[in-house]
Design a binder for these strands. Sequence first.
DNA 1: TTCGATATTTGAAGCGCTTTAAGAACTGGT
DNA 2: ACCAGTTCTTAAAGCGCTTCAAATATCGAA
Lengths: 335, 335
Amino acid sequence: MAPGPRRRRPRLEDVAAEVGVSTGTVSLVLNGAPGPSAATRDRVLAAAAEIGYRADRTAARLARRRTQLLGVMLDVRSTFHADLAAHLQDAAETAGYDVLLSSITPTRDSRRAVETLLDSRCEALVLLGPDESTSRLDALGEQLPVVVVGRRLRSSSLDVVRSADDVGVAAAVEHLAGLGHHDIAFVDGGRGTIATDRRAGYLRGMRRRGLERHVRVLTGGETEQAGARVADELLTGERLPSAVATFNDRVALGLLGGLVRAGLSVPEDVSLVGYDDSPSARLPHVDLTTVSQDTRLQAESAVRAALERLDHGRTTPSEVVLDPRLVVRRTTGPV
Amino acid sequence: MAPGPRRRRPRLEDVAAEVGVSTGTVSLVLNGAPGPSAATRDRVLAAAAEIGYRADRTAARLARRRTQLLGVMLDVRSTFHADLAAHLQDAAETAGYDVLLSSITPTRDSRRAVETLLDSRCEALVLLGPDESTSRLDALGEQLPVVVVGRRLRSSSLDVVRSADDVGVAAAVEHLAGLGHHDIAFVDGGRGTIATDRRAGYLRGMRRRGLERHVRVLTGGETEQAGARVADELLTGERLPSAVATFNDRVALGLLGGLVRAGLSVPEDVSLVGYDDSPSARLPHVDLTTVSQDTRLQAESAVRAALERLDHGRTTPSEVVLDPRLVVRRTTGPV
DNA sequence: TTCGATATTTGAAGCGCTTTAAGAACTGGT
DNA sequence: ACCAGTTCTTAAAGCGCTTCAAATATCGAA
């Protein structure tokens, strides 16, 4: 079929002309507003379908004095962000808002990503793991409702949704201790607030079980490399812990790889717990016991926080801290 | 700090008033259009910065009779799509277009995702691995320029960007044969066009090396489960191939897990090749030899295809087939 | 029939920006 | 000082839709 002549997109006016009413009436009908009679309603709807009319959101956003747009900044290449984004999409849609996704890329930093959102007149912003400084975020929060997801920070103008990292690791320790482990080590994740929280959770978990003297924090990192390094360290050391909790799944995976290559079995020789419940943790040949953050709930909380400000006039900052959930798989077992 | 009174967003008119010129002049300056004198230009720019003016894209899109919007439909939870999306973003930006991302979610199918794009008046669409029927896609293509990425199809109205799957697998076979392998099996991926192409590539690669009588196609699937199943099958069978090429990385990973658990070493006992170069393939303890599709190039090609239609009046369908690239890592070795 | 009340419909004023024809303000040459 | 030729600016007409006061149509009651 030859590419037909691309016709002008039908406008409200075309539908109106077709039916013989004013554009105002058509608009009311299409938006389900009260007023138009049932008869008119039917005719308008029929005509709209007939000529394949689709409202132009661009124009609608301008005319209505609201855009009903929720801006989401994320790194689309992070599976965690992607998961959140999908749920944010759903939650926003339910509330009658559109979502505008703006991803950072190697050549597009968070400042630019946010600017894009602002330029399209988003009414509120949801920032996934933003790397901006607190003061910049604060300044943003003065301009419009901003919800920060996954980063702990106290601010007078921002809302925060995050999960209780310390609780997650403490639960992991509790699980291991419950399996009879005493010699439980922790692989640290560096010096971010997240790492601090998770380490704190480890210490608390150990203390609660009276295992203070078994506390062993190993310097780790955030990647598989770090995990592999720790594996070497443990293998050459004198004492192998019976269980290891780690900063995140990637570290756990690196560690796992290192141990298995050295001929050790998990969980027979060492039990292992990760953090994040990333897709790789779910691979059948990995099947890592880990801690899962409920992305759906985080997304819903973020949308709710934004809407409270937008539609219900809240002006005081809110912080939602969700409890993560331990997912027991096959890398942990009794001593 | 108390949340200040949220001030009205400054408009073009405010800048104009500040400088004492018309809004038209300000608009010309801000868009770098010829006309305004250098002096005026400076004063306008200064005033705009001063009062923190940001143009409202929503209004601009309406006024200019173009939205300069490129709609991208994807499943944000696919790492492959995410990668493409990031590159599409960059490529579009370079060409002066904005990108609108619309993701399918468990509760939002591709039809709705596309509608969102249409409603915002995107000028062209890039669909990543759309699952719609060819006829629906064709119909879409009649309405506006549409580029389908990663799906082989012939259509009179669509542009297609994809990579040559057969070539990729053939390259894998070639690599293995070059290492001295003869007994090279292939784990199949089902009955999609992609699976068909990859299988064809395997057969061709084997034939080219004169290894017809070693051809062995194993029924596989698309997931790690399938790979694990194949591992069992191979282990219980009489003859273990010396190398295996697989439909994709996930299958390869499942297979790898199965073999290692059975005490076999890769690549010492069996060489293994995946397809996709997914993040898991790059994990240090996996380090899978695989075939990579150049996402950047695919993205750039897709944007180019769209712009050719939009800005240069092309009306005949185009198809870009890119050659994938073999990434040799550590799961393949000499016989 | 007539009238007030109620149900519908419409006209017109925007939303914030772009664009362009036309006007104003300069040039420099005579 | 005057004029054609340039260089700058501006006024005004939209873009496609929403909204709402005002106008009109409809209806039951008196």
